[in-house]
């Protein structure tokens, strides 16, 4: 499993975009639109990253935590599972799964430091209770494969493993966690899409190299388009819109 993505639970449980984009009926009742849904998840991915930087865990832990969070919301509503608690809990659980355990009290400390808003305030016992509910929601499937692992061998193979390209593609992969790509596509295809974008941006000719790979170039191009669309619309994701979306969740239906 650990060596073979194709026999992993991650591969077996990849979802169709339509399933990922299903807003839970309970949230729908509160007026949450698909766009709100995506916005909140993006905001929570950012929240996880900010917390992770405070407690100093690796990017892989962040990526696993964000994946857990996104998986939870393919099964559970935000109404029942408050994203402001689910996000730090996923980081907590991922830190254990990725062998760099972060103490719950440390997370609670930095949550208070990051957000003065009472709505973000949760105590240790809340995180511990949510940890079990997240485990349940994930159906105890905890191994996640990330694009990072295939990135450097691929870059090397393409002869693009200079510092500039490495940093650019690494940053692009980081940004893919602001979307649901990890729930839908095999990680090596996400890595390839990031290489594709980077090579277009830096005007490197990789056509021949991509042709030699035995992958579906259409999928790679579609993923790339999705990433570029995201950057395009990124400007519109303002703080106000995120807060408005979160505000809907607190309303009584």
């Amino acid at each position: 499993m650990a060596a073979n993505f194709w026999t992993s639970s991650h591969y077996k449980h990849l979802l169709d975009q339509e399933d990922v984009d299903m807003v839970n009926p309970l949230d729908k009742e509160k007026g949450i639109t698909l766009e709100d849904f995506k916005l909140i998840k993006m905001h929570m991915a950012n929240y996880i990253l900010k917390l992770a930087q405070q407690v100093k865990v690796r990017q892989r832990v962040v990526a696993t935590a964000v994946t857990y969070m996104r998986r939870v919301y393919t099964k559970k509503s935000m109404t029942e599972y408050d994203p402001r608690l689910v996000a730090p809990t996923c980081l907590y659980l991922a830190s254990k799964a990725e062998e760099s355990t972060v103490q719950a009290r440390l997370l609670v400390f930095y949550i208070k430091k990051l957000y003065a808003d009472d709505k973000y305030r949760y105590e240790i016992k809340d995180i511990l209770e949510m940890e079990m509910k997240v485990l349940e929601a994930l159906n105890y499937y905890l191994v996640v494969y990330h694009p990072y692992r295939s990135l450097s061998p691929l870059l090397q193979d393409a002869g693009l493993n200079d510092l500039n390209m490495t940093q650019l593609t690494w940053g692009l992969v980081n940004d893919t966690y602001k979307m649901d790509l990890i729930l839908v596509h095999p990680p090596h295809l996400i890595a390839l899409a990031c290489i594709y974008i980077a090579s277009v941006l830096r005007e490197k000719d990789t056509t021949a190299w991509f042709e030699e790979l035995r992958v579906d170039m259409n999928v790679v191009k579609n993923i790339s388009m999705e990433i570029l669309d995201f950057y395009e619309s990124n400007r519109m994701f303002t703080e106000e819109r995120i807060n408005a979306a979160l505000q809907k969740l607190t309303l009584r239906p």
């Binding site: 650990a2 992993s8 254990k96 799964a97 062998e99 485990l135 105890y140 499937y141 191994v143």
Partner: peptide, 9 residues
């Protein structure tokens, strides 16, 4: 966590 994680796969 690690035991579940491995055994699940």
């Amino acid at each position: 966590i690690r035991e579940i994680m491995l055994l699940r796969e």
